[in-house]
Computed example of a mutant assay.
Amino acid sequence: MKGLGKLIWRFVKLFLILFIGITVFWVILYRFVNPPVTWLMITRGFERKADGKEWKIDKQWRDFDDIADPMKRAAVAAEDQTFLENHGFDFHAIEKAIQKNSRSNKLIGGSTISQQTAKNVFLWPGRSYVRKAFEAYFTLLIEIFWSKRRIMEVYLNVIEMGDGIYGVNAAAQAYFHKEAFDLNRQQAAAIASIFPSPLKWSATNPTEYLQHRQYLIMKNIRRLGPMDF
């Protein structure tokens, strides 16, 4: 039994070393190389095919400086107002999410922009505690190896923005027929308002709830003041 235990422990150590080595390399690679595709994009593509639609992944990468400043500020105002100060986790939001989860069968995340970026780039779609654990791990890695500027750049380029639409440049073209660089504050707030549910909501045909959400985002943009990425 002793020999078997040692053998199992060796395999466990080898697995952990390989896992950490591969994931750290992957994260460092994406610090310099733009992610070509995500699991969500592929999954949505197959879902479209299953529904009898054409395969569609509409995305055009735009560098950080080629995205309008109001769009970056709107993302922070809508999703993670402590983005520049936190280290990948908003523990107050996590505490609120845990309280809600204890009263519901639905798993609510309370995710920061860093967590959402880690989830979108490195993980598969879905909600589970196992996935949240991997999300936390990759969030730590990108906070260590990427800058906040890079996290925001990747986030705004891979986020789902509609049926087969990914990234704010594709969203800007689909909703406002312009480039991400040319978005004004109101348009940026409209796009940011649909981040939580882009397959149900529209930036150009908002419900009353979305109009209120857009108003709050614009209000938060003014309150946040200058942001130094």
Rank of each mutant, 00 (worst) to 15 (best):
G167L: 11
D182Y: 15
F46S: 02
L7M: 14
N86I: 12
G225F: 06
R127E: 11
L4R: 15
L210T: 01
P70M: 01
L18N: 02
F138W: 09
S114T: 13
K49R: 13
E54D: 10
G110P: 03
S111M: 09
G126N: 02
S202Y: 11
S114W: 12
S128R: 06
I42C: 04
R150D: 06
A74L: 02
F25N: 10
A78I: 02
F91D: 06
N34Q: 10
Y175E: 07
L40C: 02
I98M: 14
L156F: 07
F89K: 05
A133V: 10
Y137F: 15
L4F: 15
L224R: 00
Q116P: 00
G3K: 15
F46N: 04
N157M: 12
V158H: 02
Q60E: 13
A203M: 04
Q115P: 00
A68M: 04
F89E: 04
L14H: 08
A68N: 03
I151W: 07
Q81S: 12
D182F: 14
R44Q: 12
E85Q: 14
S128F: 13
A192T: 03
A50G: 06
K200D: 10
I165F: 11
T43G: 05
Y209W: 08
G162F: 14
L140P: 00
K59N: 05
R149I: 11
E85T: 13
W61S: 00
A97W: 09
K2P: 00
S104A: 08
W55G: 03
Y209L: 09
D65I: 01
Q116H: 02
P196F: 12
R62L: 00
L7I: 12
F19C: 07
I94H: 09
A174P: 02
R222H: 13
